[in-house]
Amino acid sequence: MSDFLQALASQPFLRQALFAGLLASVACGVIGSYVVVKRIGYLAGGIAHSVLGGMGVAYFFGGDPMDGALVAAVLAALLISWVNLHWREHEDTVIGALWAAGMAVGILLMARTPGYNVDLMSYLFGNILLVPSSELWRMAWLDLIVLLLVLLFQKQFLAVVFDEEFARLRGIRVAFYYPLLLVLIAVTVVVLIQMVGLILVIALLTLPAAVSGHYVRTLGWMMVGATLLGMLFTFAGLALSYGPDLPAGATIILLASATYLISVVALAWRRR
């Protein structure tokens, strides 16, 4: 641990990685709480995987893959929310199709890109140590937008995730707020992909919120708890992986999973 702290003081790239993790934890804790209480982890997974298609398109045309990721994520969110509101019986199938088709498009286009040298592994599993400082700014902006919208529309979002029919009866435009919430999920997924990649992103989105939910009685505190847990997992994951040179993203996810497991068992034990 002291090695890690020394390295943190002397190595700018490590400080940058930690900072990226802390930034991501904010959007992750807030939006992840909605994903957990609304039970739409599968939907968020579909958005995350379809993102590879956007990355492939951007890469093929010589653009920034993260721009392509953002566009693809938002389009996927809008498509899924349209299906949810108008064609609900097929929602599951559409998400599954989007999940696989997005990845297929990404892989095809990356294979066809002239001078192909992209490290597919870093998109799939992320690399927090290689987050450039320009991405830090993007993450900070996205955090700010997410927080602002959640603060502004906290009542409407709560109503929509808690009891959609009642929200509709009270005059809430569900056809506006539900897609907006999914777009925020999409944006958060893109922020997190930098860190842990699109395969592991769902674990990071849901596990801190799920653990937090074991100990609080309101959605607001769940978000606060999930954000702090996300920060803790990031810090501990970086520290643990630094010495033995393990992949940081995978270490963070395993820490979160282990904590979730222990929390579930502890709760079951206490309730006996």
Partner: peptide, 12 residues
């Protein structure tokens, strides 16, 4: 759902 009685009623 993590919500108190007061919060659930207040949504009305």
């Amino acid at each position: 759902f993590p919500i108190t009685v007061t919060q659930a009623v207040m949504l009305g």
